[in-house]
Structure formats: structure tokens, C-alpha cells
């Protein structure tokens, strides 16, 4: 089945991102298609490659990036929410006159329309948040 996820919380503060990760891993293992994972609200913080969690802790962003690479999962960070919270890709950094970008591999920044489209295209949309 074609599934989509909405993740509304950042990593570490709330379990939502972990739950979403475990859900995606289980869904992929069962042969389901993940149409898209959309990150909104503080969820956009899942997409920064500048986070450096302790070595003995899980690295949630790296896990997302791995899933994106291994299973071609579309990880989309909401542009409006990302700009508020300082998550930038190369283009946005240039456009906003910032000195660098911090988007992690496998993530892309795009508009809220991508969330609505995921709701239209996927057979189920599962929300993880606080």
C-alpha cells in the first residue's frame, strides 16, 4: 500500500520522530511504498545535518538519510516552517544571504502543497506529533 507520514516534532525532544522512523522501517520491511515523509512544525529540525548527538545515542537525522538512500524515500521539509527555524538548503541560503546551508542528505525543502499532495496520492496518511 502507498503510505505517507507527517512528522510534526523535532528529534530528541519528543518521541514522534523515533516512532515515525520505526514505523517507516516496519512498513518498508513489509513491502509497502512510502510515498513521502513530510516534516512540519518543529519536525523540520529532523532535517539538519548540524546536529551532533552523543556517540552512544541514536542519530535520528542520519537514520532518515539512510532510509532515503536505501529505499528512495522522499523526505520533504516544509519551507515556511524551515525558514522560521533556520533549516536551509544551498539555494535558500543564497537567496536569504546566509553563509551556509544545513540540510541533511536525502532531505529536500519544498512547499506545503507537498503535504496536501501526499494526502491525495497516498492511501493512508499517518500523523506523528505532540
Amino acid at each position: 500500500m502507498k503510505l505517507a507520514l507527517l512528522v510534526n516534532e523535532g528529534p530528541y525532544q519528543h518521541q514522534a520522530a523515533d516512532s515515525a522512523l520505526q514505523f517507516v522501517k516496519a512498513a518498508v520491511a513489509k513491502g509497502h511504498e512510502i510515498f513521502r515523509v513530510f516534516f512540519y512544525h518543529d519536525g523540520v529540525n529532523n532535517g539538519t545535518r548540524f546536529a551532533v548527538p552523543p556517540q552512544d545515542d541514536r542519530n535520528i537525522t542520519v537514520e532518515w538519510s539512510k532510509l532515503a538512500e536505501e529505499h528512495k524515500i522522499d523526505l520533504v521539509v516544509c519551507i515556511a516552517a524551515a525558514q522560521r527555524r533556520g533549516i536551509l538548503d544551498e539555494n535558500e541560503a543564497k537567496r536569504q544571504g546566509k553563509s551556509g546551508d544545513n540540510i541533511a542528505p536525502g532531505f529536500r525543502i519544498s512547499g506545503l502543497g507537498q503535504l496536501i499532495e501526499a494526502g491525495i496520492q497516498a492511501e493512508r496518511l499517518v500523523v506523528f506529533g505532540d
Binding site: H41, A80, G111, L112, G113, L115, I116
Partner: peptide, 13 residues
Amino acid sequence: LESLEVVLISAAF
């Protein structure tokens, strides 16, 4: 606030 932003975008679809 951010929920309202999604609602506004949804109108375009």
C-alpha cells in the same frame, strides 16, 4: 498558526 497555513495552501488543490 501553522495549521492555518496548511489550510490556506489546501485551497489551491
